[in-house]
Write a protein that binds this DNA or RNA. Structure first.
Lengths: 208, 208
DNA sequence: AGAAAAAGAGAACAAAAAGAAAACAATTGA
DNA sequence: TCAATTGTTTTCTTTTTGTTCTCTTTTTCT
């Protein structure tokens, strides 16, 4: 999974900022007009990238006339003062771009700390035995260190970000999944960069 | 029940916004004129979808001169400061109404519905295999009915409230834990009162 | 400058949704 | 009673929409 390109971010920002102006989830054609584009196919690629990144979700109500966009990113359109930045999805992704303030999610105090925090959506089942499921949101305290046993967001060799248990040993860093079918990953310390520590978790059971 | 299509939503929005301009509930033909449509049959399908979705109701005054539309029902449920009431813990407890010490918890929109919701804290491991752990908070939509397979707050014989999978059969209600070491509970329907349905979940990893 | 990546245009396709038109049945009102 | 109106159903055509291609243009990076 790649990091968003500039254009993809532009399009997402447009969706976030103009969400209110859509009476109903916009179709690709409608979005083309809004964005001044002439081709659905081009926009389609960008939208798929956003869906893949977990920033946007397809409109699953109808079968065909509608892989459309819902509100960007399970948004709470909260002000940045109160909400936490929702950055995107994490699985085998790319470094987290803390700069692009994307959407904001209104997180209860009990799920965050007094340090800077952000929200990610979990992709995959690597932490399923820890009760962290595909599609859950996690609240991450931004930190570049952690204690053994904590669940961390780790960036591996500058390219892949993942959510795992941390186990640091001399000259070795283990990233342990909580899934009996998956193997632990072993790296040298310089290969792994800690980007944050899990402090909260959320799940929605709604079926839209 | 299906999600509305774009056109259905448009038509609903028109009815909601122009309700005042109808001296009496409009007929399909009248609505066709307003909406610039040429066929009753086409509009009929949309209206039926809205009725099916509960957004509109047929006019039952006269028998024939009108399956017409009334104003859509409005739901308004403001809770203090937009937070959800935090009711207390649930395990083998008391009826939820008995707990009066109400605090309010700030819950992200993605974890609640547009119906009345409240928050409980989970005690025990009866739902551990569903990724719901001891100490988690759950967001419950207040409802007295549920579908099979949903996770519900059920009050047993007026005294014990518990969080379980619901399985309703003829003359029998099963409450299934998500824990391989625990047995299912079987009751007669009149013994079980559904108090709500799980729609969201939260966990804190903070160590105080 | 040149290669690679990203963005865009445009066409084509299948399926879904929307619409038109006609016919029918039930009710109302004169 | 008769004519008009209204809801209802059915059949058909048109439009919309997501999706997938190929090709060209623009941007980015070395």
């Amino acid at each position: 999974m790649n990091v968003l390109t500039r254009r993809q971010r532009e399009i997402f920002n447009y969706l976030r900022d103009n969400n209110d102006s859509f009476t109903c989830p916009p179709s690709l054609d409608e979005l083309c007009v809004r964005l001044g584009m002439a081709s659905r196919g081009s926009l389609y690629k960008h939208i798929m990238a956003l869906i893949n990144a977990g920033l946007v979700e397809p409109f699953t109500g109808n079968k065909k006339a509608g892989v459309r966009l819902t509100a960007p990113a399970q948004q709470d359109n909260e002000s940045p003062e109160q909400g936490l930045p929702f950055i995107g999805a994490i699985a085998a992704g790319k470094p987290i771009e803390a700069l692009s303030n994307i959407a904001y999610m209104n997180v209860p105090d009990a799920l965050k700390t007094d340090k800077p925090c952000y929200v990610l959506q979990v992709k995959g089942d690597s932490m399923i035995d820890a009760g962290i499921f595909d599609g859950d949101w996690v609240v991450i305290e931004q930190r570049d260190y952690a204690k053994n046993g904590e669940i961390v967001v780790a960036l591996i060799e500058g390219s892949d970000a993942t959510l795992k248990y941390l186990e640091q040993r001399v000259g070795q860093v283990l990233l342990l999944p909580a899934n009996t079918t998956m193997a632990a990953l072993s790296y040298r310390p310089e290969q792994v960069e800690i980007q944050g520590v899990l402090v909260g978790q959320m799940r929605s059971y709604r079926t839209h």
